[in-house]
C-alpha cells in the first residue's frame, strides 16, 4: 500500500462537493478593506477630536476658576462638547458593496 496514493485518493474524494462562491469571499474582503481604510482615514480626525475635547475641558475649567462656577453655563458646555464631537465624526465612504 502506498501512503501517497491513499492520501491523494482522500483528496479526490473531497472534490465532489461544490466549492463556496468566490464572489462572496471577494466582497467580504472588499468590505474588510474598506473598513480598514476608513479606520486609517479617520485616525487624524480622532486625534483632533481628542485634542479639542481636552482643550474645551481645560478652557471651561479655567473660565470657571476665574469667574466662579456658573451652573447655567453647564448645558452650553455640554452642547459645545457634542458639537465638537459631531464636527469630527465624518463618515468617509470608500466602498459600495
Amino acid at each position: 500500500m502506498n501512503i501517497e496514493v491513499e492520501l491523494r485518493n482522500l483528496r479526490a474524494a473531497d472534490e465532489a462537493r461544490p466549492l463556496p462562491s468566490s464572489g462572496a469571499i471577494w466582497w467580504r474582503a472588499e468590505i474588510d478593506r474598506a473598513r480598514r481604510s476608513r479606520a486609517r482615514a479617520s485616525r487624524p480626525f480622532a486625534f483632533l477630536q481628542a485634542v479639542s475635547a481636552v482643550a474645551g475641558v481645560a478652557g471651561a475649567l479655567s473660565l470657571w476658576s476665574e469667574n466662579g462656577v456658573d451652573w447655567m453655563a453647564a448645558p452650553l458646555a455640554v452642547l459645545a462638547g457634542v458639537l465638537v464631537w459631531k464636527l469630527y465624526s465624518f463618515d468617509i465612504p470608500t466602498c459600495k458593496p
Binding site: 482522500l10 483528496r11 473531497d14 462537493r17 468566490s22 469571499i25 471577494w26
Partner: peptide, 18 residues
Amino acid sequence: FEAFYRETAPGLRSYIRR
C-alpha cells in the same frame, strides 16, 4: 483572485477537511 481560487480552493478545502 478568481483564477487563484479555482486553482487552490479544492486543495485547501480538502486540507482543512482532513
